[in-house]
């Protein structure tokens, strides 16, 4: 039955100790870009462009390898981006160009 359980559906599996943060004493704050991912999703959701259900489906469809390799908000933005591409809200070409522009200009903007 192992093949029937999807990768994200992990309740009851064996795993190591919980790396807790001592009540928040060892917590790290989220990076600004991570909060931006959260903000983008909330705005897309409240404006009806996409649902949280679509976000989750997109995360699950990243597949086992990527799911574990990416951090939490990396999974989110990967899913959000795929869904916006699917829906035609943004296009692959403009996204690629914009990412390259931002990277080229990084550190130059005051």
């Amino acid at each position: 039955m192992r093949h029937l359980r999807r990768h994200h559906d992990m309740g009851g599996l064996d795993a190591g100790p919980v790396d807790h943060d001592h009540g928040g004493a060892l917590a790290h704050d989220y990076a600004p870009w991570e909060k931006k991912v959260d903000a983008i999703l909330r705005l897309l959701s409240s404006s009806g462009v996409m649902t949280v259900d679509e976000l989750r489906r997109g995360i699950e469809e990243l597949g086992p390898g990527i799911y574990d390799e990416l951090s939490y908000y990396e999974r989110w933005i990967a899913s959000v981006t795929n869904i916006l591409l699917e829906k035609g809200v943004i296009e692959t070409d403009e996204l690629g160009r914009r990412m390259a522009e931002i990277e080229a200009g990084w550190g130059h903007t005051p």
Binding site: I77, T81, L84, M99, I102
Partner: peptide
């Protein structure tokens, strides 16, 4: 993914 976030 940070670039992706800013671009999106």
């Amino acid at each position: 993914y940070q670039l992706m976030t800013e671009a999106v």
